[in-house]
């Protein structure tokens, strides 16, 4: 379980909570046990990310949760979650699936952060879609970034805090 985040932690990002939320969502919905990718350098050898699910988390500390995946990962996740064959999946299914995935990660983390300094309200999730896209921010914006893998699945989460 995560540590209790009181006012002393206001300048941090509760990355451990979002990590636990992501583990929980991936395992419950697909049965995959993802692990933290140790080397970011290794990840960046194949930086292609085509679908970004995002959500604004509005609280005392405003944050943005970003979940980025490539099409292959999106297809696998959505296929496992829905039982649909990979060949049946349309682009819209992948976009909706990753948007809903981000929604569930944010929802799971929200429960763990209730009554802490990072308590927040959920807003509507949305997706950004393209080829080899990424989210970057000004240096003044705090960021937590972690990539998770299991076989062919690779999921990157970022939390921007401002």
């Amino acid at each position: 379980m995560c540590k209790h985040y009181n006012d002393d932690y206001i300048d941090e990002i509760p990355g451990d909570v979002f990590t636990e939320a992501l583990y929980n969502v991936v395992y419950t919905m697909t049965g995959f046990n993802v692990e933290k990718k140790i080397s970011e350098e290794e990840v960046e050898k194949k930086p292609s990310r085509d679908i970004v699910g995002a959500m604004v988390l509005a609280g005392k500390k405003n944050m943005v949760l970003v979940v980025s995946v490539n099409k292959a990962t999106a297809s696998l996740l959505v296929s496992y979650m829905t039982g649909m064959d990979l060949t049946e999946l349309k682009e819209e299914d992948l976009h909706d699936g990753i948007t809903e995935f981000a929604n569930m990660v944010a929802g799971s983390a929200k429960v763990m952060l209730t009554d802490t300094v990072f308590s927040y309200k959920l807003t509507s999730p949305f997706a950004v879609v393209g080829e080899n896209i990424g989210i970057i921010s000004k240096k003044s914006v705090m960021q937590y970034c972690q990539t998770f893998c299991a076989n062919e699945v690779e999921i990157k989460i970022q939390i921007f805090s401002f």
């Binding site: 959505v78 649909m84 299914d93 909706d96 809903e100």
Partner: peptide, 12 residues
């Protein structure tokens, strides 16, 4: 409002 949730629930 998520078609994916419809598909998941329908399957189950």
């Amino acid at each position: 409002d998520s078609p994916m949730i419809h598909n998941m629930l329908r399957k189950t």
